[in-house]
Nucleic acid binder design. Structure first.
Ligand SMILES: [Mn+2]
Ligand SMILES: [Mn+2]
Ligand SMILES: [Zn+2]
Ligand SMILES: [Zn+2]
Lengths: 154, 154
DNA sequence: GTCGTTCTTGCGAGGCTATGCAATAACAAC
DNA sequence: GTTGTTATTGCATAGCCTCGCAAGAACGAC
């Protein structure tokens, strides 16, 4: 469903410090969190909350949705994931974000791509200059239609 | 919560043609649709799907959510409303959009502004040329911080 | 006014996400 | 290993939005 974002850097390696990161904050290392991190470590690019629940459930049928969503909140605070909302409003988590970037999503087929600061520069500079508005690229979502998806009517 | 978008032009007047617009397409004029249009005619700027359901329910307790959402779909096809998704992923309907436009929202205070095709031209043209991607300006959401709101952390 | 066609509605169910609460488990200290 | 503290889980519930389906209503024709 979601395309884009080249493979993450170290794969599993990047997650090595997660257990320590949790403990340093007084948070706990539980079997549920370990499973979620294992799945994320094998994911590159984007994943929706629902997809993550599903993949965890494939490995442990007892997986509870709310636990997954709450763990995602924690991981976002630690910087391991970052979320925005896709064109359909659903959560889209970016795993191990290398650099802040915006998302472009097809309203037809749901495919998604990334947009860099460089791509958005002209617009970002215009908003900064004209309105004093500082764009948070991670919270930019551009909806539209990819070449394969004709926008039906209108 | 959402600022911007000056009051709609004619208020009720702008909705006068709605009944005809429906009939010309073979669609029907029902009591449910009339109520929804009445409520929308008294709304200017933005409204979420849930808010609209609530306001309709205030006038007719028998209002059914799915009917409201389906009517919004129809009205969007006729051009009377246009929706995108707010920073929290919920649907945000723009009533009587004068022109298709994108939304800029402050992640700090929630203030929102509009962005026109002209403002986005450079980026839109770039995406069209480079990826064959046709931007739907109404589905563009730009998050960031207004001059008054310091970007907290990270 | 009656009838037939086709659009709409109501209703039920389901997907995605959030939250409160009590029971449980992780961790640190001993 | 036991115990106490407190974070976390499971569960239930709820909100927002979508969809299928069968019953019902709007509309045009007569
Ligand atoms: Mn939508
Ligand atoms: Mn969110
Ligand atoms: Zn597409
Ligand atoms: Zn602000």
């Amino acid at each position: 469903m979601s395309t884009s974002t080249p493979a993450s850097p170290g794969g599993k390696a990047a997650w090595a410090g997660a257990r320590e990161a949790l403990r340093e904050r007084g948070l706990r290392w539980t079997p549920q969190r370990r499973l979620i991190l294992d799945v994320l470590a094998e994911t590159s690019g984007h994943i929706t909350g629902a997809e993550l629940v599903e993949r965890c459930r494939a490995r442990d049928a007892a997986t509870i949705g709310s636990t997954v969503y709450r763990t995602l909140d924690v991981l976002e605070e630690l910087g391991y994931v970052r979320h925005s909302h896709g064109a359909d409003g659903r959560e889209e988590y970016h795993v191990l974000p290398l650099a802040e970037h915006a998302h472009i999503g097809c309203l037809g087929c749901g495919a998604a791509w990334d947009l860099t600061w460089e791509d958005a520069r002209e617009l970002v500079e215009r908003l900064e200059a004209r309105n004093g508005f500082r764009v948070a690229l991670g919270h930019v979502m551009i909806g539209g239609y990819c070449p394969g998806c004709e926008p039906a009517e209108r």
